[in-house]
């Protein structure tokens, strides 16, 4: 078992997870658990509470972020916040899924996730939709710089590269 107890972020998550009494309402409400038994929100929270560590299986990335568990939790535990926190920790360690990394790259490059193609521009023109004002690229860069997104991105770029090799 990896001792992560020194990690303040983890400790905060543990604190947030503390009221959980393992009733299973979250799991029974989870659309992903219904089709993919390896994603069990109750077990993710359990792992945080009892082992003080991020669930080893990396199941946090299977969360669909539908917030059903959070809405129904009888103890008011914010499961999505916890899963998001786990993801933030994993991301720092370069464990983000490639498609998420790609999204972040797109955001950095264009300030937008969906690719703008000639085709989609043409569609807008055909439908008589207005040209949307574009954000200042400097703003995007600044936010990436100051909020530590560059580092996270870099950690994951390396990981993606290693994976490819």
């Amino acid at each position: 078992m990896v001792d992560n107890s020194h990690n303040q972020e983890l400790e905060d998550l543990r604190e947030a997870a503390r009221p959980c009494f393992q009733c299973g309402i979250c799991a029974s409400s989870c659309p992903v658990f219904r089709v993919a038994p390896e994603m069990n929100p109750r077990m993710s929270v359990d792992s945080i509470i009892t082992d003080g560590q991020v669930p080893a299986e990396g199941n946090e990335w299977l969360c669909a972020y539908c917030l059903m568990c959070e809405e129904r939790c009888p103890m008011g535990v914010s499961l999505t916040e916890i899963l998001m926190g786990i993801r933030n920790i994993s991301s720092k360690e370069g464990k983000a899924p490639p498609d998420f990394v790609e999204s972040a790259e797109a955001l950095l490059a264009r300030g937008c996730l969906s690719p703008t193609s000639n085709r989609s521009v043409k569609k807008r023109v055909d439908l008589g939709l207005p040209d949307l004002p574009q954000p200042d690229p400097e703003h995007v860069k600044l936010i990436f710089e100051v909020t530590g997104a560059y580092e996270v991105l870099e950690a994951n770029r390396v990981a993606v590269k290693e994976e490819a090799e």
């Binding site: 990436f144 909020t147 530590g148 997104a149």
Partner: peptide, 8 residues
């Protein structure tokens, strides 16, 4: 995006 960094 939020998964990577809450602050961002």
């Amino acid at each position: 995006v939020r998964s990577l960094s809450e602050d961002t």
